[in-house]
Computed example of a mutant assay.
Amino acid sequence: MLKKVLILIGGIVFALKIQCMGLKASPAEFVLHDVVPGKFYNLYKEVNIRIKIYNEDDISHKYFIRTYKPKKVTKLMKGYDEISVEGWLKFDKYEIEIPPHRVGYVYPFLYIPEDEKYFNQHWCAMIGIIARPSSGVSLGVYLRVRIETQSKKRVKEKPDGMLAVVTSVIKFYGNGKKDITIYNNSPEKEEVKIYLLKDKKQIKRYLKHGFAPLDKNVKIKLPGKIVIEKNGREKFPISVNLKEVKRNQEGIIFFEGKNSINFLRVEILKKNGKN
Protein backbone atom coordinates (compact mmCIF):
# COMPACT_ATOMS: atom_id res chain seq x y z
CA MET A 1 0.00 0.00 0.00
CA LEU A 2 1.13 3.50 -0.78
CA LYS A 3 0.51 4.63 2.80
CA LYS A 4 3.03 2.22 4.25
CA VAL A 5 5.89 3.33 2.04
CA LEU A 6 5.57 7.09 2.02
CA ILE A 7 8.45 9.23 3.21
CA LEU A 8 7.37 12.75 4.06
CA ILE A 9 10.23 15.20 4.21
CA GLY A 10 9.15 18.05 6.42
CA GLY A 11 10.04 21.67 6.23
CA ILE A 12 8.77 24.84 4.68
CA VAL A 13 9.88 26.49 1.47
CA PHE A 14 10.27 30.21 2.04
CA ALA A 15 10.05 32.87 -0.62
CA LEU A 16 11.73 36.22 -0.42
CA LYS A 17 9.36 39.02 0.40
CA ILE A 18 8.82 41.16 -2.66
CA GLN A 19 6.75 44.32 -2.45
CA CYS A 20 5.51 43.37 1.04
CA MET A 21 4.38 39.93 -0.10
CA GLY A 22 5.11 37.02 2.25
CA LEU A 23 4.72 33.53 0.82
CA LYS A 24 5.76 30.14 2.11
CA ALA A 25 4.50 26.60 1.59
CA SER A 26 4.89 23.07 2.90
CA PRO A 27 5.85 20.25 2.70
CA ALA A 28 9.10 21.19 1.00
CA GLU A 29 9.43 17.68 -0.44
CA PHE A 30 7.70 14.32 -0.30
CA VAL A 31 8.37 10.88 -1.74
CA LEU A 32 5.87 8.28 -2.95
CA HIS A 33 6.96 4.65 -3.25
CA ASP A 34 5.22 1.68 -4.88
CA VAL A 35 2.93 3.81 -7.03
CA VAL A 36 0.92 1.41 -9.21
CA PRO A 37 0.34 2.48 -12.83
CA GLY A 38 -3.37 2.52 -13.56
CA LYS A 39 -4.43 3.38 -10.00
CA PHE A 40 -5.83 6.78 -9.02
CA TYR A 41 -4.44 8.26 -5.78
CA ASN A 42 -6.06 10.91 -3.62
CA LEU A 43 -2.89 11.75 -1.71
CA TYR A 44 -4.68 13.32 1.25
CA LYS A 45 -6.87 10.25 1.81
CA GLU A 46 -4.05 7.80 1.10
CA VAL A 47 -1.13 9.38 2.96
CA ASN A 48 -2.46 12.59 4.53
CA ILE A 49 -0.62 14.91 2.13
CA ARG A 50 -1.99 18.33 1.33
CA ILE A 51 -0.22 21.51 0.28
CA LYS A 52 -0.27 24.31 2.84
CA ILE A 53 0.16 27.84 1.51
CA TYR A 54 0.90 30.59 4.02
CA ASN A 55 0.07 34.20 3.17
CA GLU A 56 2.10 36.28 5.62
CA ASP A 57 1.30 39.57 3.93
CA ASP A 58 -1.11 42.21 5.23
CA ILE A 59 -3.38 41.91 2.18
CA SER A 60 -5.09 39.05 0.36
CA HIS A 61 -3.31 37.34 -2.54
CA LYS A 62 -4.30 34.95 -5.29
CA TYR A 63 -1.96 32.02 -5.93
CA PHE A 64 -1.75 29.78 -8.99
CA ILE A 65 -0.79 26.11 -8.62
CA ARG A 66 0.89 24.16 -11.42
CA THR A 67 2.95 21.00 -11.99
CA TYR A 68 6.32 21.53 -13.68
CA LYS A 69 9.04 19.31 -15.04
CA PRO A 70 12.07 19.90 -12.77
CA LYS A 71 14.50 21.13 -15.42
CA LYS A 72 12.30 24.17 -15.93
CA VAL A 73 13.04 25.38 -12.40
CA THR A 74 15.88 23.37 -10.80
CA LYS A 75 18.32 20.46 -11.15
CA LEU A 76 17.23 16.84 -11.05
CA MET A 77 18.10 14.74 -8.03
CA LYS A 78 20.63 12.08 -9.04
CA GLY A 79 19.03 8.92 -10.39
CA TYR A 80 15.64 10.47 -11.07
CA ASP A 81 14.14 11.42 -14.41
CA GLU A 82 11.56 14.09 -15.13
CA ILE A 83 7.95 13.03 -14.86
CA SER A 84 6.86 12.10 -18.38
CA VAL A 85 3.60 14.09 -18.32
CA GLU A 86 3.03 17.05 -16.01
CA GLY A 87 -0.73 16.43 -16.05
CA TRP A 88 -0.36 13.15 -14.14
CA LEU A 89 -0.07 15.20 -10.94
CA LYS A 90 -3.30 17.18 -10.53
CA PHE A 91 -4.96 19.34 -7.86
CA ASP A 92 -8.43 20.01 -6.55
CA LYS A 93 -7.94 23.66 -7.49
CA TYR A 94 -5.45 25.55 -9.64
CA GLU A 95 -5.89 28.94 -8.07
CA ILE A 96 -6.69 30.00 -4.54
CA GLU A 97 -7.17 33.35 -2.84
CA ILE A 98 -5.89 33.52 0.74
CA PRO A 99 -6.71 36.35 3.18
CA PRO A 100 -3.87 38.10 5.03
CA HIS A 101 -2.06 36.02 7.64
CA ARG A 102 -4.08 32.92 6.82
CA VAL A 103 -3.36 29.45 5.46
CA GLY A 104 -4.88 27.89 2.35
CA TYR A 105 -4.96 24.21 1.37
CA VAL A 106 -4.57 22.50 -1.98
CA TYR A 107 -5.18 18.75 -2.38
CA PRO A 108 -3.04 16.77 -4.86
CA PHE A 109 -4.02 13.71 -6.91
CA LEU A 110 -1.82 11.32 -8.86
CA TYR A 111 -2.63 9.02 -11.75
CA ILE A 112 -0.01 7.18 -13.82
CA PRO A 113 -1.56 5.50 -16.89
CA GLU A 114 -1.80 1.72 -16.84
CA ASP A 115 1.13 0.64 -18.99
CA GLU A 116 3.84 -1.97 -18.44
CA LYS A 117 6.59 0.48 -19.36
CA TYR A 118 5.76 2.67 -16.36
CA PHE A 119 6.74 0.10 -13.72
CA ASN A 120 10.25 0.36 -12.13
CA GLN A 121 10.41 4.14 -12.63
CA HIS A 122 11.96 6.98 -10.61
CA TRP A 123 10.45 10.35 -11.48
CA CYS A 124 10.53 13.86 -10.11
CA ALA A 125 8.02 16.70 -10.46
CA MET A 126 7.83 20.21 -9.05
CA ILE A 127 4.71 21.87 -7.67
CA GLY A 128 4.85 25.59 -8.40
CA ILE A 129 2.89 28.07 -6.28
CA ILE A 130 2.91 31.44 -7.99
CA ALA A 131 1.55 34.73 -6.66
CA ARG A 132 0.74 37.57 -9.03
CA PRO A 133 0.58 40.98 -7.35
CA SER A 134 -1.19 43.92 -8.94
CA SER A 135 2.15 45.37 -10.07
CA GLY A 136 2.72 42.34 -12.31
CA VAL A 137 5.81 41.09 -10.43
CA SER A 138 5.54 37.34 -9.84
CA LEU A 139 6.62 35.54 -6.70
CA GLY A 140 6.81 31.76 -6.52
CA VAL A 141 7.95 28.77 -4.50
CA TYR A 142 8.44 25.19 -5.67
CA LEU A 143 7.89 21.92 -3.82
CA ARG A 144 9.62 18.72 -4.93
CA VAL A 145 7.71 15.46 -5.45
CA ARG A 146 9.57 12.18 -6.00
CA ILE A 147 7.55 9.34 -7.49
CA GLU A 148 8.77 5.74 -7.57
CA THR A 149 6.48 3.29 -9.32
CA GLN A 150 6.01 -0.30 -8.26
CA SER A 151 8.91 -2.67 -8.84
CA LYS A 152 8.14 -5.51 -11.25
CA LYS A 153 10.42 -8.42 -12.16
CA ARG A 154 8.94 -9.11 -15.59
CA VAL A 155 7.54 -6.50 -17.93
CA LYS A 156 5.84 -7.13 -21.27
CA GLU A 157 7.48 -4.19 -23.02
CA LYS A 158 10.63 -2.10 -22.85
CA PRO A 159 10.55 0.12 -19.73
CA ASP A 160 10.38 3.90 -20.02
CA GLY A 161 13.50 6.06 -19.75
CA MET A 162 16.87 6.39 -21.47
CA LEU A 163 18.56 4.01 -19.01
CA ALA A 164 15.98 1.68 -17.47
CA VAL A 165 16.30 -1.07 -14.87
CA VAL A 166 14.26 -4.22 -14.23
CA THR A 167 13.68 -4.66 -11.41
CA SER A 168 13.99 -1.42 -9.42
CA VAL A 169 13.96 -3.16 -6.00
CA ILE A 170 15.66 -6.44 -5.08
CA LYS A 171 15.25 -8.11 -1.69
CA PHE A 172 17.58 -10.43 0.22
CA TYR A 173 16.97 -12.30 3.47
CA GLY A 174 20.50 -13.67 3.57
CA ASN A 175 23.30 -14.55 1.17
CA GLY A 176 22.25 -14.78 -2.45
CA LYS A 177 22.51 -13.70 -6.07
CA LYS A 178 19.91 -12.10 -8.32
CA ASP A 179 19.90 -11.00 -11.94
CA ILE A 180 19.15 -7.45 -13.04
CA THR A 181 18.50 -6.23 -16.58
CA ILE A 182 19.58 -2.78 -17.77
CA TYR A 183 17.96 -1.32 -20.89
CA ASN A 184 19.79 1.24 -23.00
CA ASN A 185 17.02 3.10 -24.81
CA SER A 186 19.35 5.78 -26.16
CA PRO A 187 20.42 5.97 -29.83
CA GLU A 188 24.06 5.18 -29.04
CA LYS A 189 26.13 2.53 -27.28
CA GLU A 190 26.56 3.15 -23.55
CA GLU A 191 29.32 2.21 -21.13
CA VAL A 192 27.44 2.03 -17.85
CA LYS A 193 29.23 2.42 -14.52
CA ILE A 194 27.66 0.46 -11.66
CA TYR A 195 28.43 1.49 -8.10
CA LEU A 196 27.05 1.61 -4.57
CA LEU A 197 26.20 4.94 -2.96
CA LYS A 198 28.50 5.26 0.07
CA ASP A 199 28.17 8.91 1.07
CA LYS A 200 26.43 8.83 4.47
CA LYS A 201 24.82 12.24 4.09
CA GLN A 202 23.48 11.59 0.62
CA ILE A 203 22.10 8.15 1.38
CA LYS A 204 19.76 9.57 4.03
CA ARG A 205 17.79 11.31 1.27
CA TYR A 206 17.27 8.03 -0.57
CA LEU A 207 16.47 5.59 2.25
CA LYS A 208 12.93 4.35 2.66
CA HIS A 209 11.25 4.82 6.03
CA GLY A 210 12.10 1.93 8.36
CA PHE A 211 15.45 1.14 6.72
CA ALA A 212 18.98 1.81 7.94
CA PRO A 213 22.09 2.16 5.75
CA LEU A 214 23.97 -1.05 5.00
CA ASP A 215 26.11 -2.43 7.82
CA LYS A 216 29.82 -2.95 7.23
CA ASN A 217 29.34 -6.72 7.28
CA VAL A 218 27.09 -6.57 4.18
CA LYS A 219 29.16 -7.16 1.06
CA ILE A 220 27.64 -6.49 -2.36
CA LYS A 221 29.44 -7.68 -5.47
CA LEU A 222 28.92 -5.62 -8.62
CA PRO A 223 30.40 -5.90 -12.13
CA GLY A 224 31.81 -2.35 -12.05
CA LYS A 225 30.75 -1.49 -15.58
CA ILE A 226 29.03 -3.02 -18.58
CA VAL A 227 28.67 -2.01 -22.22
CA ILE A 228 25.19 -1.96 -23.74
CA GLU A 229 24.51 -1.50 -27.44
CA LYS A 230 22.05 1.18 -28.54
CA ASN A 231 18.44 0.13 -27.95
CA GLY A 232 19.83 -3.00 -26.33
CA ARG A 233 19.81 -4.62 -22.91
CA GLU A 234 22.21 -6.56 -20.71
CA LYS A 235 21.64 -8.89 -17.78
CA PHE A 236 24.10 -9.17 -14.90
CA PRO A 237 24.12 -10.61 -11.35
CA ILE A 238 24.19 -8.78 -8.02
CA SER A 239 25.57 -10.90 -5.18
CA VAL A 240 25.11 -10.26 -1.46
CA ASN A 241 27.19 -11.79 1.31
CA LEU A 242 26.46 -11.12 4.97
CA LYS A 243 26.82 -12.69 8.39
CA GLU A 244 23.60 -11.79 10.18
CA VAL A 245 20.64 -9.49 9.56
CA LYS A 246 19.80 -7.63 12.77
CA ARG A 247 17.72 -4.87 11.17
CA ASN A 248 16.22 -3.91 7.84
CA GLN A 249 18.85 -2.23 5.70
CA GLU A 250 18.95 -0.64 2.29
CA GLY A 251 21.61 0.16 -0.28
CA ILE A 252 21.37 2.35 -3.38
CA ILE A 253 23.11 1.13 -6.55
CA PHE A 254 23.59 3.68 -9.32
CA PHE A 255 23.79 2.93 -13.05
CA GLU A 256 25.53 5.85 -14.70
CA GLY A 257 25.80 6.22 -18.45
CA LYS A 258 26.71 9.10 -20.70
CA ASN A 259 23.11 10.16 -21.28
CA SER A 260 21.32 9.14 -18.09
CA ILE A 261 21.60 7.91 -14.48
CA ASN A 262 19.26 5.44 -12.80
CA PHE A 263 19.35 3.41 -9.58
CA LEU A 264 17.89 0.42 -7.81
CA ARG A 265 17.26 -0.37 -4.17
CA VAL A 266 18.84 -3.39 -2.48
CA GLU A 267 16.85 -4.31 0.61
CA ILE A 268 18.36 -6.57 3.27
CA LEU A 269 15.49 -7.87 5.39
CA LYS A 270 15.63 -9.55 8.79
CA LYS A 271 12.39 -11.44 8.19
CA ASN A 272 12.90 -15.13 7.41
CA GLY A 273 12.01 -16.07 3.88
CA LYS A 274 13.28 -17.14 0.51
CA ASN A 275 15.30 -15.03 -1.89
Rank of each mutant, 00 (worst) to 15 (best):
K62F: 10
S151D: 07
A131V: 12
Q19V: 13
N259G: 11
H61Y: 11
A164M: 08
D57G: 12
I261F: 00
I252C: 00
K17Y: 11
Y41N: 11
S26H: 03
M21V: 12
F255G: 00
K193V: 00
D115Q: 12
L32H: 04
G38V: 02
K225I: 05
E56D: 14
V5H: 14
Y206V: 02
Y68K: 14
E148R: 14
L110N: 03
Y183V: 01
I65C: 02
K3T: 11
L207R: 02
K198D: 05
K4H: 13
G22V: 08
K230Q: 11
S60C: 08
I253P: 06
F40L: 13
Y195L: 12
I18D: 05
D179F: 14
K270G: 13
E97M: 15
L214A: 06
S60Q: 10
L76Q: 05
S151N: 06
K221I: 10
Y94C: 10
D199E: 15
F40E: 10
I194Q: 07
K225T: 04
K198F: 11
A164H: 02
K69T: 08
K78F: 05
E114N: 11
I228F: 01
L76Y: 04
V165T: 10
C124M: 15
N175W: 02
K171A: 00
D81F: 01
I18C: 02
D58P: 02
L197E: 07
V192I: 13
I59G: 07
K62V: 12
Y206M: 06
I53S: 05
I51G: 02
P159I: 00
D92T: 08
F30H: 08
E229W: 02
K17G: 09
L222F: 04
L163D: 01
C20L: 15
L6E: 13
K17M: 06
N275T: 03
V47I: 05
P213T: 13
I98T: 08
L242N: 03
K158L: 07
V35D: 03
I238T: 03
N248K: 10
F263E: 01
E157V: 01
K258W: 15
V192W: 01
V103P: 12
G136L: 09
P100N: 05
G136P: 06
E191D: 13
H33Q: 11
V165D: 03
K52G: 09
E157P: 06
K221V: 06
L89Q: 06
A164Y: 02
V5T: 14
I96M: 03
P27S: 05
V103Y: 04
N184R: 13
P133S: 15
Y63T: 00
G140F: 15
N48F: 05
I268M: 08
D81R: 14
V137W: 07
K204L: 14
I253R: 04
Q150E: 15
V166Q: 01
V155Y: 00
I203K: 10
V103R: 12
N120S: 13
